[in-house]
Lab assay of single mutants.
Amino acid sequence: VRQEELAAARAALHDLMTGKRVATVQKDGRRVEFTATSVSDLKKYIAELEVQTGM
């Protein structure tokens, strides 16, 4: 499950970095929206997932 969450989070980051205004991911069973202003929060979430998956 964590691998899927990590892939979704990375895709969301890619979307935001390429101009999409809002990206949505499932985080702990709930839907979370990230915007360009919350990229740093999304990067932290990705880092947490990488630690949890041993990457």
Score class of each variant (00 low, 15 high):
Val1Thr: 08
Val1Pro: 06
Val1Tyr: 13
Arg2Thr: 11
Arg2Phe: 11
Arg2Ser: 10
Gln3Gly: 09
Gln3Phe: 13
Gln3Ala: 14
Glu4Leu: 07
Glu4Val: 11
Glu4Lys: 14
Glu4Cys: 12
Glu5Gly: 04
Glu5Cys: 11
Glu5Gln: 06
Glu5Met: 09
Ala7Tyr: 09
Ala7Lys: 14
Ala7Gly: 06
Ala7Leu: 11
Ala8Thr: 07
Ala8Asp: 10
Ala8Arg: 12
Ala9Phe: 10
Ala9Glu: 01
Ala9Met: 09
Arg10Ala: 05
Arg10His: 10
Arg10Ser: 04
Ala11Lys: 14
Ala11Ser: 12
Ala11Trp: 07
Ala11Pro: 00
Ala12His: 01
Ala12Trp: 02
Ala12Ser: 03
Ala12Cys: 03
Leu13Asn: 00
Leu13Ala: 02
His14Lys: 10
His14Val: 13
His14Asn: 12
His14Phe: 12
Asp15Thr: 06
Asp15Pro: 00
Leu16Arg: 00
Leu16Lys: 00
Leu16Val: 03
Leu16His: 00
Met17Gln: 11
Met17Trp: 05
Met17Lys: 07
Met17Pro: 00
Met17Leu: 06
Met17Phe: 07
Thr18Ser: 14
Thr18Cys: 12
Lys20Met: 06
Arg21Asp: 15
Arg21Ala: 15
Arg21Ser: 15
Arg21Cys: 14
Arg21Phe: 14
Val22Thr: 04
Val22Asn: 07
Val22Arg: 07
Val22Asp: 04
Ala23Arg: 03
Ala23Gly: 07
Ala23Leu: 02
Thr24Ile: 15
Val25Pro: 01
Val25Tyr: 01
Val25His: 01
Val25Arg: 01
Val25Ala: 04
Gln26Thr: 14
Gln26Met: 15
Lys27Glu: 03
Lys27Gln: 04
Asp28Gly: 09
Asp28Glu: 10
Asp28Asn: 08
Gly29Trp: 01
Gly29Phe: 03
Arg30Tyr: 11
Arg30Glu: 07
Arg30Met: 15
Arg31Asp: 15
Arg31Tyr: 14
Arg31Val: 15
Arg31Phe: 15
Arg31Gln: 14
Val32Gly: 01
Val32Met: 10
Val32Pro: 02
Glu33His: 10
Glu33Ser: 09
Phe34Lys: 00
Phe34Ile: 04
Phe34Met: 03
Phe34His: 02
Thr35Val: 05
Thr35Cys: 07
Thr35Lys: 05
Ala36Cys: 13
Ala36Ile: 08
Ala36His: 13
Ala36Asp: 10
Ala36Pro: 12
Ala36Lys: 13
Ala36Phe: 11
Thr37Ala: 15
Thr37Asp: 13
Thr37Trp: 05
Thr37Gln: 12
Ser38Val: 04
Ser38Asp: 14
Ser38Ile: 04
Ser38Leu: 08
Ser38Pro: 01
Val39Glu: 03
Val39Gln: 05
Val39Cys: 08
Ser40Ala: 14
Ser40Met: 14
Ser40Leu: 14
Asp41His: 08
Asp41Asn: 07
Asp41Trp: 08
Asp41Gly: 06
Asp41Glu: 12
Leu42Thr: 00
Leu42Arg: 00
Lys43Gly: 04
Lys43Asp: 03
Lys43Val: 14
Lys44Asp: 13
Lys44Thr: 05
Tyr45Ser: 01
Tyr45Asp: 01
Ile46Val: 04
Ile46Trp: 02
Ile46Asn: 01
Ile46Tyr: 00
Ala47Phe: 08
Ala47Val: 08
Ala47Met: 10
Glu48Phe: 05
Leu49Lys: 01
Leu49Gln: 02
Glu50Pro: 00
Glu50Met: 08
Glu50Asp: 05
Glu50Ile: 11
Glu50Tyr: 07
Glu50Thr: 04
Val51Tyr: 13
Gln52Glu: 14
Thr53Val: 15
Thr53Asn: 14
Gly54Val: 06
Gly54Arg: 04
Gly54His: 12
Gly54Lys: 05
Met55Tyr: 05
Met55Phe: 12
Met55Lys: 07
Met55Trp: 07
Met55Ser: 13
Met55Leu: 14
Met55Cys: 10
